[in-house]
């Protein structure tokens, strides 16, 4: 019988907890959650014999692929238990790197459920998360007709100067993800997006490590969209209301919380988002857009494993319930 629901996540992920509560509430008995913080044991992958089968065990629970109904890759990773490679201490790090590569192939096989058994319902994809490239995403968004901010990646001061002369106000942010640095028992993080001033640029050497620069865009609203299997749940953030959050809403202003309300995307924008998600082959993701003072929607980025808890709660969307239903029914 197909009754197992497998969820790959992280311990601290609130959305996963909520989805699981709904699954239990709706009577699902075999829900197995694997957190990236834990390790799994591979029982066996049996290929090309009479009894082709795949099974893994995790905290004393057996996961047999033949019994799998749905799998949700929410975030995190599937990690293998550590084994000591005896007698190779001298080249330990090289061996470990090799073992990691070995495990990667196994892991990708295990998570590539659709290719093992096409009747399993799959939501999310680790490989999409791993290969998610913000620059590709921007480029593809542009080709499907979504406006993006004029963007450059450069390591030359002269280029930055040209760029700022052209657009007046420009910003910079991490090309990958907002970094956190640990120093003397404290964690330091950046504010996400920061303004690049002419004075700041002036102080730079002629060549530097490549950075991203974008035209600063005056906005009326920030729009967040949680996309799932063809549906868009959108929310507007009136971040212009308070000065502090003007550049990036993560600079959250607690006293005068920004207004957050449900938002209905114009049909044309929605269609382009669907096109983008299809082009990126993502079945879930959260997108950041801004609505500009020139009445345009501008795409900033998409996170395949972005948070939706906040959006779901504030807009009363019950996205967790929707996901639980999909996993239960084994279809959209």
């Amino acid at each position: 019988m197909r009754d197992t629901i497998l969820i790959i996540s992280e311990y601290s992920d609130v959305s996963t907890n909520k989805v699981m509560e709904y699954l239990h509430h709706h009577g699902e008995k075999k829900v197995i959650r694997i957190n990236a913080e834990d390790v799994i044991n591979l029982n066996g992958i049996d290929l090309g014999t009479d009894k082709s089968s795949v099974s893994i065990s995790y905290l004393n629970r057996e996961i047999v692929y033949d019994e799998m109904k749905s799998i949700w890759y929410r975030r995190g990773d599937l990690l293998c238990g550590k084994f000591n490679a005896y007698g190779t201490e001298a080249i330990e790090s090289q061996v470990n790197r090799f073992l990691l590569e070995e495990w990667r192939v196994v892991r990708d096989f295990l998570l590539g459920v659709k290719r093992i058994d096409s009747s399993v319902f799959v939501l999310g994809d680790l490989s999409k998360e791993e290969y998610c490239n913000k620059l590709h995403n921007l480029n593809i968004a542009h080709t499907v007709g979504i406006k993006i901010p004029p963007t450059i990646i450069t390591s030359r001061k002269s280029e930055l100067e040209k760029f700022i002369n052209l657009y007046g106000i420009i910003v910079t942010k991490a090309i990958s993800n907002t970094p956190t640095f640990h120093f003397e028992n404290s964690n330091y993080s950046t504010r996400g997006t920061a303004i690049l001033t002419a004075e700041g640029i002036n102080k730079l050497p002629d060549r530097f490590f490549p950075i991203l620069a974008q035209k600063y865009i005056d906005k009326v609203l920030e729009v967040r969209v949680f996309y799932i299997k063809g549906d868009c749940y959108a929310m507007a953030i009136f971040s212009q209301d308070s000065e502090k959050t003007k550049i990036d809403y993560r600079n959250y202003d607690h006293e005068q919380a920004n207004r957050i309300v449900p938002f209905k995307l114009p049909t044309i924008v929605k269609q382009r988002i669907l096109k983008l998600m299809r082009a990126l082959d993502l079945d879930t993701g959260s997108l950041d857009l801004i609505y500009t003072t020139h009445n345009e929607f501008v795409f900033l980025e998409v996170n395949p494993c972005g948070q939706f808890d906040w959006l779901s709660y504030n807009c009363n969307y019950y996205i967790e319930r929707r996901i639980a239903k999909m996993l239960s029914n084994g279809k959209n």
């Binding site: 509560e21 709904y22 209301d241 005068q256 449900p262 938002f263 114009p266």
Partner: peptide
């Protein structure tokens, strides 16, 4: 900050306050 002005009222749907659920 209860009210704002917009040329696009249909972009701002009402909250679905009839939907309340608990998973227990």
């Amino acid at each position: 900050k209860y009210l704002f002005y917009t040329p696009f009222p249909s972009s701002f749907p009402k909250l679905d306050i009839g939907d309340w659920d608990e998973s227990s």
